[in-house]
Design a protein around this nucleic acid. Structure first.
Length: 853
RNA sequence: GGGUAGUUAGCUCAACUGGUUAGAGCAUUCGCUUGACGUGCGAAAGGUUAUAGGUUCGAGUCCUAUACUACCCACCA
């Protein structure tokens, strides 16, 4: 970019984790970044390489805590938040120089005196400022969402911080009674009533008006309705269909119309006697019947068709079911879709809905939907609600943060752990005859990476950023070319991700990071209410979201504490919220925005295009009104020699030192660059490294040869020679032409970000054209003695020819060194220092001039 | 299931917006060389660019279909 007359070029180096030494793949990026930095320096530009080190969020927190435990026997809880943070900061400061030395060893020529830590107060200020701006712009909110909750560590975990383990469980088939019309709940506290239903006596009288549900008129009960008979004394529930209904308006009416022997064991005898019997069932019952009437129902047993069977590994979560889901294309359930089923044990009704996510082949093809405790169910619920806002289903959270059952479930389950509750629920359902079968099943369970505790998915209130306003400009920036992505096909991945982007959850339950700048006037409490809904309160006052809290004077969004009694939000920001601001946060911290922002290139691995690059673009457009960089170069990943992904667990990681020790940093850089294209991965090849080492040796020897043959000329004299008057022959002219073409070709390749091709061509040209052909050609003209030791090429035309060859060899070598320098800085610099120094020559090849510039 | 790529020499990979005879490293075969070279040089062999169609004066490159492979995202109730 051109600013103030002098061209500038800037790259922000992606900050490596500061807590560990990088492996050979981690440092590959620096090679590409450095090639670009050095290349642009050769054009006399003002160049900035902005380095930094990352605090690494949860991984960083885990690593340092482990060290504290080992060294001092103290966990983070022992230390307390403030102390832990300070100690961690000090620890990271100690580690940073080590990581920095790894960057330097690979040759990264960034401005190390400007190095920044991600938690540097200057950076923090920028990051938090963005959140405050978003708050002012109405873009942040707290929303209830399903999270991975580690009941042992008492924290939410990102998916990446969890593991999956196979576990033998059983798939339990549970049948739910279907209601094709309406469902009625009849609850009894009298065994007698239930006995009559159970004992085959098919007629029962009931209240015309249910005092518990004053709006329901039981006179509406019709044939075919489902009756759920709940015995409140022992939890047993019976399900019956209505066969026939007879309505009476008064006790007398009923007395006349009923065969009372079907109702009572004995003949009631008289109306009064009957009234007495009814009164014994409940206080004032008889009076109410007199007043409101009576319904006599003939029941029928439910048949197989009247149940809908689901298969589940987590029977206990049925207590929190809010729907049954079937595949819309599943003919078996066509008729039931839109109907309701009665949920046993908790006596609720839930609808049968559809989702294409349901696999018809698995289990029974019907899934119980527990949105509060299953991520998949949560997604299905969300999708359903988006498409059917009028028939939206909710969630019911029944598991507390302690990992035990709570909320709107029968009291006997309260406090049970999931697994105990599962057994209890299965036992209870079995007693009711609702368990169809149980079969062994292998299930993969999510456990905490660190605690190894089984993760409970629960509903929790989290901070969100509304991305609608962020995403559109970021999509446009790539579409209209403000940002160019290399390789080009990655555009599609970027756009696909961006177009499907949903609101961004930005809070994490950690200490090591950017604490959310929100203050509460008292304690913020998150609780599950009797309906299983998550509710928040500050100092006992219920609040609905942050704007409500601020309005009520119970919360403030600002960086510094408002004073005594105010408590800061416990969470920190998601790592991408801060790293997404890294380009301008760093350059701003160094006071260089006017000169170097927006930057020219973001060079990083293709694997974080969506996670990181997209966020940098969004956040820079939002806060700075400009893209953070004009080009994105996405390198491939370095794989182990056998083509496998390098990872600690596979024990196949290679440290940069190992390679540098045997082959040199330049060879390693060539391995990264030569012949590779962006976006595709490549394995470490010791054969190639060997080849590059020989290439470096070739350069060294070619240079040595040229210098040996320059001994009789003064450097300055050579430089002052008039090129047009030298006695070049065809060999020289061919070589010159080749080199001229190479210079412009290399430039063209570099400008187009074809680093791999550029390096490959330089490699081939130097070795096979310059060294193999041209140097061989000029040997005869350069030698000063023949095989017998007589003087040669020392006078007349021979000397003229020799001078031309010397001049050519020297200038060509110099040109090659400059062209090669961005790729192999160490060897080119070493050779450069061996060359005679001329008046215009830079002290270091880093500041040499690109040929012709 | 959704997305993105890949399939080119024995192996690992290139080939810039379609343009000579598809290249390199390593491996293989033969020869030469030691006065820049840890060696190096020269030469050879090795390909119907996954398959089948299509567009074009011209296709590894563009289009369609198929078959495999890899990666990312989602998922296994």
């Amino acid at each position: 970019m051109k600013r103030d007359g002098r061209e500038t070029f800037s790259i922000v180096n992606p900050p490596p984790n500061a807590y560990m030494r990088p492996h050979i793949g981690n440092v590959s990026g620096y090679a590409y970044q450095d090639v670009l930095l050095r290349y642009h320096r050769l054009f006399g530009k003002k160049v900035l390489g902005q380095p930094g080190k990352d605090h690494a969020g949860i991984q960083g927190e885990v690593v340092v805590e482990k060290i504290f435990i080992e060294n001092k026997g103290k966990t983070k809880l022992d230390m307390g938040r403030e102390k832990f943070y300070k100690a961690s900061y000090a620890h990271f400061e100690k580690l940073m120089p080590m990581v920095m030395s790894d960057e330097q060893r690979i040759g990264l020529s960034s401005d190390y005196d400007r190095n920044l830590f991600t938690l540097d107060p200057k950076v923090v200020e920028t990051v938090l400022g963005t959140f405050i701006k978003m708050f002012a712009d109405n873009m942040v909110y707290k929303g209830v969402r399903i999270v991975n909750w580690d009941p042992v560590a008492q924290t939410t975990l990102a998916d990446i911080d969890t593991e999956r383990v196979e576990r033998e469980t059983e798939l339990v088939y549970i049948k739910y009674p279907v209601s094709r019309q309406r469902v009625w709940f009849l609850s009894f506290r009298s065994k007698e009533v239930l006995e009559r239903i159970r004992s085959g006596k098919k007629t029962i009288e009931t209240r015309a008006l249910n005092p518990d549900e004053p709006d329901r008129f039981f006179g509406d009960i019709q044939t075919g309705d489902l009756i759920v008979c709940v015995d409140k004394t022992d939890g047993q529930t019976l399900y019956r269909k209505v066969r026939e209904v007879t309505a009476f308006t008064s006790m007398k009416d009923a007395f006349d119309g009923l065969d009372l022997r079907q109702v009572f064991e004995q003949e009631p005898g008289s109306l009064d006697e009957m009234r007495e019997r009814y009164a014994s069932l409940a206080d004032g019952y008889a009076e109410r019947i007199d007043k409101n009437g009576l319904v006599a129902i003939t029941f029928a047993e439910l048949g197989d068709d009247d149940f809908l069977t689901v298969a589940t590994t987590r029977a206990e979560t049925m207590l929190g079911d809010t729907a049954i889901t079937v595949n819309p294309a599943d003919k078996r359930y066509k008729e039931l879709t839109g109907k309701t089923v009665a949920l046993p044990l908790v006596d609720r009704t839930i609808p049968v809905i559809t989702s294409a996510r349901v696999d018809k082949e698995f289990g029974t093809g019907a899934v119980k939907l527990t949105p509060a405790h299953s991520y998949d169910d949560y997604v299905m619920m969300t999708e359903w609600n988006e498409e059917h806002p009028d028939d939206a289903v909710g969630y019911i959270n029944i598991i507390s943060k302690a990992g035990t059952l709570s909320g709107p479930v029968p009291e006997r389950y309260w406090g049970m752990k999931s697994e105990d509750a599962r057994a209890a629920v299965i036992r209870d359902l079995d007693r009711m005859g609702l368990i169809v079968k149980r079969e062994p099943h292998t299930q993969s369970v999510m456990i905490g990476e660190r605690s190894k505790a089984v993760i409970e998915q629960i509903m929790s209130s989290q901070w969100f950023i509304d991305v609608e306003r962020l995403k559109q400009p970021a999509i446009a920036a790539v579409k209209n070319g403000d940002v160019t992505i290399h390789p080009e096909y990655m555009n599609k991945k970027y756009l696909h991700w961006m177009e499907n982007l949903h609101d961004w959850p930005v809070s994490r339950s950690l200490w090591w990071g950017y604490r959310i700048p929100v203050w509460y006037k008292g304690e913020l409490k998150e609780e599950i209410n009797d309906e299983g809904q998550v509710i928040e309160s500050i100092n006992g006052t219920a609040v609905k979201g942050i704007y409500d809290a601020v309005e009520k004077g119970l919360a403030l969004v600002q960086i510094d504490s408002p004073g005594e009694g105010w408590i800061q939000d416990e969470d920190v920001f998601d790592t991408w919220f801060s790293s997404g601001q890294w380009p301008y946060a760093t350059i701003k911290a160094n006071g260089l925005m006017d000169t170097f922002y927006p930057t020219d290139v973001m060079e990083t691995g293709y694997d974080i295009l969506e996670l990181w690059v997209s966020r940098m673009i969004m956040l820079s457009l939002y806060t700075q009104g400009t893209v953070p960089f004009t080009n994105v170069y996405l390198h491939g990943l370095v794989k182990a020699p056998d083509g496998q992904k390098m990872s600690k667990s596979k024990n196949n990681v290679i440290a940069p030192e190992e390679i540098i020790k045997d082959y040199g940093a330049d060879s390693l850089r060539l391995l990264y660059v030569v012949g590779n294209k962006p976006g595709s991965s490549y394995p470490v090849s010791y054969e190639k490294l060997e080849g590059y080492k020989r290439f470096l040796n070739k350069i060294w020897n070619a240079a040595k040869f040229v210098l040996l043959n320059l001994q009789d000329v003064d450097g300055a004299a050579l430089e002052d020679m008039d090129r047009t008057k030298l006695a070049f022959n065809d060999d020289d002219r061919t070589m010159h032409a080749h080199l001229d073409a190479l210079v412009s070709e290399t430039k063209r390749r570099m400008e187009g970000f074809h680093l791999g091709v550029a390096a490959q061509e330089l490699y081939d040209s130097f070795w096979h054209t310059f060294a193999d052909i041209y140097i061989e050609q000029i040997k005869e003209r350069l030698y000063t003695r023949d095989k017998e030791g007589n003087p040669l090429n020392m006078e007349g035309d021979d000397l003229e020819s020799r001078r031309a060859a010397q001049w050519s060899a020297y200038t060509i070598l110099k040109t090659y060194l400059v062209l090669l320098h961005p790729f192999i800085p160490f060897i080119t610099e070493t050779v450069w220092q061996e060359l005679p120094r001329y008046k215009d020559d830079a002290e270091t090849i880093m500041y040499a001039k690109w040929p012709g510039s």
